[in-house]
Design a binder for these strands. Sequence first.
DNA 1: TCGTTTCCATGATCCACGTCAATTTCTGTG
DNA 2: CACAGAAATTGACGTGGATCATGGAAACGA
Lengths: 249, 249
Amino acid sequence: MTQATNVTPLFNDLAKIERDHTVACQECSLYRLCLPLGLHNNDLVRLDTIIKRSQNYKRGHILFTDEQPFKSLFVVRSGSFKTTISASDGREQVTSFYFPGEFIGLDAIHQSEYQSNAKALESSSVCELPYDMLQEIGEEMPQLQIQMLTRLSKELAGDRNLMLLLGKKTADEKLATFLLSLSKRFQERGFSATDFQLSMSRSDIANHLGLAVETISRLFSRFQEEGLISIAGKALSVQNIEKLKQLCG
Amino acid sequence: MTQATNVTPLFNDLAKIERDHTVACQECSLYRLCLPLGLHNNDLVRLDTIIKRSQNYKRGHILFTDEQPFKSLFVVRSGSFKTTISASDGREQVTSFYFPGEFIGLDAIHQSEYQSNAKALESSSVCELPYDMLQEIGEEMPQLQIQMLTRLSKELAGDRNLMLLLGKKTADEKLATFLLSLSKRFQERGFSATDFQLSMSRSDIANHLGLAVETISRLFSRFQEEGLISIAGKALSVQNIEKLKQLCG
DNA sequence: TCGTTTCCATGATCCACGTCAATTTCTGTG
DNA sequence: CACAGAAATTGACGTGGATCATGGAAACGA
């Protein structure tokens, strides 16, 4: 995750995670946002043994593409990622952005290949969960299974909301909804809900919301004129969160 | 499912299911499309004991709304359903249509309330799976857990494709993609891939695809003129499936 | 540090699809 | 079978956001 302007205890922990890729689940500050939530100690230790912690990847690193065989799920440890799917003619849709504690690859479980392409938006690292091993230890850990189902279900519900956004909302509403979703997720991770860095480009945002880059540019400018936000490059500051909420529809 | 014009063995079985709501999983013709797939006999019998089979519901019957507590998942036994989610201002998005063997309610697993509204599009029946019981027997049936994960994952992948459709495709491409998706699902269920009844209204289709009703009407007319389909009321016949596939993008 | 590329902002123009309106056709009900 | 309300079709017109075009500002690799 891009460094936020106000530093919180969780942020310090995240910085530690970034430096040290041996931190076990037990000591990981993402604990309450992550898979292990609700696992008993023995189970947690066991889960820990199957997790592979990655080195730091740099911006642009490709985690997987939709042509590769599905082997593992990934949890973001630090940084952020985007996933895309592509139509046969090359058009792409940015399906989601992922922040620390979130799962990447869940849509591939039913197939032998990944269903999307995942790319790092900034310097990032992940925990890799080999799916066959996950399934194996899952047989004896109902809590783990429940966690997995919960994750998937949450993601599904999120996607449905995005369908509402894509199908029914105006450009203004789309951007307002998107910014508030970011704000909420940063807050859950102990960052400021109002001041943060956008790790994705304008064109990623545009694509994700079903708009053109130019529209996003214009909206950022207008939102700024109207005192809703203030934005300079990638640094965003929400000035009037209430008005932004009203805009969502 | 609405009666298709060409009758196949599976169709006859489906007709039987519609009449007799006591058919056990073991004898159900949906077996290979449904949850029990891959379960051993003992497990199947056990699963069978927790399933409640509904009477026939008629068109317009509401299975659940997003205000009700989440208790059960549902599998369509006969007929079809639509699910919608609504924005705070009342706008609605049709998130999905469901046919026999498909699961409704998966997006609610992580919550105490349903996340959407489910309504019968025609005379329909369902199998009800109380989620607490499912979880209970799931602890001892890894195959069942895997099935559930697979289902959820498949639904997720489907939603991602719909995001591509909503975000990037033109009206023509949207309708072509939708018709082909219906065609494929009918075929999987033993019906004709080219001749079937649309159980949903034009406005449901329009809403689902992020278009206006009028646009759907015009497209149906134009597709007909161009020899792609022939449509009379709810009866659709695909005339040129190849051309339709090209249109999808 | 420079040169190159990618990203971003903003104005001018255009068009795919929405909206409005007027019929027509279907569907369900007494 | 008739009638009322809902659903679907078709045309005329308007518009939100795409596209095209240009110039400036970052980011990046050598």
